[in-house]
């Protein structure tokens, strides 16, 4: 009970502090409410609300999280309407049917539109079977387009290399390492032969390559996550608090 009260006091104190800071900044004219000030204050509030989760899960975080999902979905719907549904379906098929726009309605659009509507019928128990037509079309089309292009771009192109030995020694060493890495990792994942003797030795080299690759991925992931934090803190201390120029 004492702990719960302490959490409420902490959240309430931060809220009051945030309110005071904004009032001071607005009254001193450091933030222009009707310029970009309202957007900055809202952004700062939501940034702090999101990071409040690091202390503990709390209602402020939950509100911000749900608002983020809702706003993002609303934005996606508006963009999809104005960029796709309105120009490609509404104005080319539906409007010309009911109004003389000087353009004939494009009935070919009916086919993809219907397939799109069929996908939404998964919500109906009686008509859900129609969605399989849409999925069958997507899977068939996707496989037909993707398989030959992927084989060409990601397998055949990756298999070709000019020469193992280059005029530059570092490039030759790099080429050799790439070849060694690919072969040893493939042997590590080849389970039809027992990993003993030469095969066992090469598969151990493969494990080393895998560990180095995982380490590189981890390093890059840390960099990515920290970049997001740096960006948010830059926003708070530069755009909101004006401590940085």
């Amino acid at each position: 009970m004492i702990k719960k009260n302490r959490d409420i006091y902490i959240i309430f104190s931060i809220f009051i502090l945030f309110f005071i800071v904004n009032i001071v900044y607005l009254s001193l004219g450091w933030l222009d409410l009707w310029g970009n000030g309202l957007g900055i204050i809202t952004g700062a509030a939501f940034t702090l609300a999101m990071y409040s989760f690091l202390y503990k899960d709390n209602p402020v975080f939950k509100i911000a999280e749900n608002l983020f999902v809702g706003v993002a979905m609303g934005y996606w719907i508006v963009i999809t309407w104005f960029n796709i549904l309105k120009p490609d379906v509404f104005e080319t098929l539906i409007v010309p049917i009911f109004k003389d726009t000087g353009k004939a309605p494009q009935f070919t659009i009916l086919f993809p539109t219907l397939l799109g509507i069929f996908m939404l019928l998964r919500f109906s128990k009686k008509l859900a079977w129609l969605s399989r037509w849409s999925f069958a079309f997507i899977v068939g089309l996707g496989a037909g387009i993707t398989i030959p292009n992927f084989i060409h771009a990601f397998i055949l192109k990756q298999l070709t290399f000019d020469s193992l030995f280059s005029t530059s020694i570092p490039v030759s060493i790099n080429n050799f390492l790439v070849l060694l890495g690919v072969v040893s990792v493939l042997i590590y994942f080849f389970f039809s032969v027992e990993h003993k003797g030469v095969v066992g030795g090469v598969s151990v080299i493969g494990v080393w390559f895998l560990m180095i690759a995982f380490g590189a991925s981890f390093g890059y992931t840390v960099m990515a996550r920290m970049s997001l934090l740096i960006g948010r803190i830059q926003f708070l201390i530069r755009d909101w608090l004006g401590l940085l120029q």
Partner: peptide, 24 residues
């Protein structure tokens, strides 16, 4: 983004990408 950066390096070596900026 830096997260997908390591996955893109094979495309540099095969010259399918002429250059790559990874992360911040």
């Amino acid at each position: 983004t830096a997260v997908i950066g390591p996955d893109m390096y094979p495309f540099l070596q095969s010259k399918q990408l002429n250059g790559l900026m990874s992360g911040l």
